[in-house]
Design a binder for these strands. Structure first.
Lengths: 124, 124
DNA sequence: CCTAGTAACTTTCACATTGAAAGTGACTTT
DNA sequence: AAAGTCACTTTCAATGTGAAAGTTACTAGG
């Protein structure tokens, strides 16, 4: 999708046009906090994103300038993905989403500073 | 979806399981900031959500306890939707998403405090 | 009484997206 | 030569989306 095809002038609608789906922000999460760099590593995440979806999302994120694909090895050619500064700027968004989920849905919380995560709550 | 069906223990994945799609957060936005209360009003938003999608999302949000449907008039029966405290707690999430979109996608910004919005940027 | 209008959905159906699984190509390792 | 790895791509059935029309329950006007 190109910029002129945004649904509306609303910043929320526009952001959802870019990252508003089930998988995209999980890819960003893995690149941002979990040190994942390769297609394989991203695919091996807990949520088991299908490989065709992952490939499509990586392409979209690259088109939006949120990440870049780079060759990190020749023979055989291997690629590494990493967030651009624009991609990294999504961190506060991810943080708020994580905080809300932790509080209201009992998910686990990951602390980017310490690199540690706290277990999911089981009770309400 | 029930809580036991979450994809993973990750708070981000869980939050996306609940509100991670193209429309849900726009409904929350309209209830949170734009004073929309009725099905009709929600449907008349700038992004023109299809009525079947709107109905399904309202049902989902109610099942998750994020909003409530109430009769506000008999003969003929009319309904009003409004956010619960849990629903309202999504405000910081919406704010971050809006801020990011405003900065990176040139969308307009709405200020909940003043109730005013600033025009979308056209340049980069 | 009949027709038009409104709100709140629901139904229909063609089309798009998803996701599980298998396949491909370029290599390296055994 | 055979097996393995990585980075995808292809296939295809199932699911989801969205435009449009239909339904139900009323009120208002002629």
């Amino acid at each position: 999708m190109a910029k002129q095809d945004f649904r509306s002038a609303c910043s929320i609608a526009r952001t959802l046009d870019v990252v508003g789906d089930k998988w995209t922000l999980l890819v960003v999460r893995d690149l941002m906090w979990h040190g994942k760099r390769t297609f394989q590593a991203l695919q091996d995440s807990a949520e088991r994103v299908p490989s065709n979806i992952l490939a499509e999302r990586l392409k979209r994120l690259a088109e939006w300038g949120l990440l870049r694909r780079e060759v990190y090895q020749q023979r055989p050619t291997r690629y590494a993905y990493h967030l651009t500064d624009e991609g990294k700027s999504l961190e506060p968004v991810l943080m708020q989403i994580m905080t809300w989920g932790h509080k209201h849905l009992g998910g686990g919380r990951f602390d980017p500073k310490s690199g540690r995560s706290f277990a999911a709550r089981t009770g309400p």
